[in-house]
Design a protein around this nucleic acid. Sequence first.
DNA 1: TCTGGGGTCCTAGGACCC
DNA 2: TCTGGGGTCCTAGGACCC
Length: 344
Amino acid sequence: MDYFYAACEELRKPEIIGKPVIVGADPKSGKGRGVVMTCNYEARKYGIHSAMPISIAYRTKPDAIFLPMDYAYYEETSGKVMQVLKNFADDFEQVSIDEAYLDISSKADSFEGAAAYAKKIKDAVKEKVGLNCSIGVSFNKLLAKMASDAAKPNGIKVVEEDKVHAFLDSMPVRKLYSVGEKTGERLAAMGYGTIGKLSKANKMELIAEFGSIGLELHNYANGIDESRLMQAALAKSIGREMTFETDTYNRDDIESGLRKLSEEVAKETVKGGFAFSIVTVKLRYGDFSEKLKSKSIKPSSDVKEIYETAVKLYLDNAEKNRKLRKIGVRVSGLIQYGKQRRLG
DNA sequence: TCTGGGGTCCTAGGACCC
DNA sequence: TCTGGGGTCCTAGGACCC
């Protein structure tokens, strides 16, 4: 989906269409903590983008329309979109709230036919939900995904078998799926600044540097991806995090934060019908250094177990003279004992 | 300029079991 | 006195994605 959260807001507030719209943290007149979740293309004209600190977005365009996240509404809208998409697919994999893979092998016998079919899907999403999406069409998931990125906004991009290198080679290596900031820097230092250069790299050199990921990088750079669509899987962990308005080492503030987070996590695990056997606490200090501390326990579904384990992990491991910026609570080792309900 | 919150997967050492 | 190989679980850390 194109700029999904901001597009959802435009859908229910047509009067904001055409103005810069930013969904994310409360800017608090430039003092707010947090980031831009997404923004529409009018806001992007000013250089605003996802993950940008909200304070900078505010400084850049103080008269933009700033809106808080409304997950429940976005989930509901996402559900409608996914329902439309499923009806067009032989096989279907939802990847996130606003992305999905569709296997349409039986629906077209050429890429030309597939492109026409993609247009039908786009039109149906627009007609039934009212939102624009972008579609990548290719012969594997990697290339379909990268083509859909290239198709944004509101486009369709096809990558045929004999056009893989024409499509990938000139892109900076950072655009390759699975290459983030760190791997991008290491690849650049090795002389692989573009996907084309990476595609010709020596496999063994990449394996020596990155282990099994090195082989994956080489395959991806050559457009090779044999992964299949995955069936919806049960959650592996459930967590909640919060950033303090100002950094703190006050024990009462931190413990009440852990209590609130534990309660939310417990509510979510009960909703999913899960017990858990591992509790993890995240501690982020003012300098952004982060520690995760975890403890295995007897399987439980009790909020008290989460809270008491979380507080113990905090007390045993936090450096009490350093202020904390963020805390988090997560449970894993999930065992489903009850009926699954949809997780939000 | 100052950096969120939800996740997943991979690696690795040590403990422990057979 | 010196000692293998296979496996799982626990804990911690790192990277990435949306």
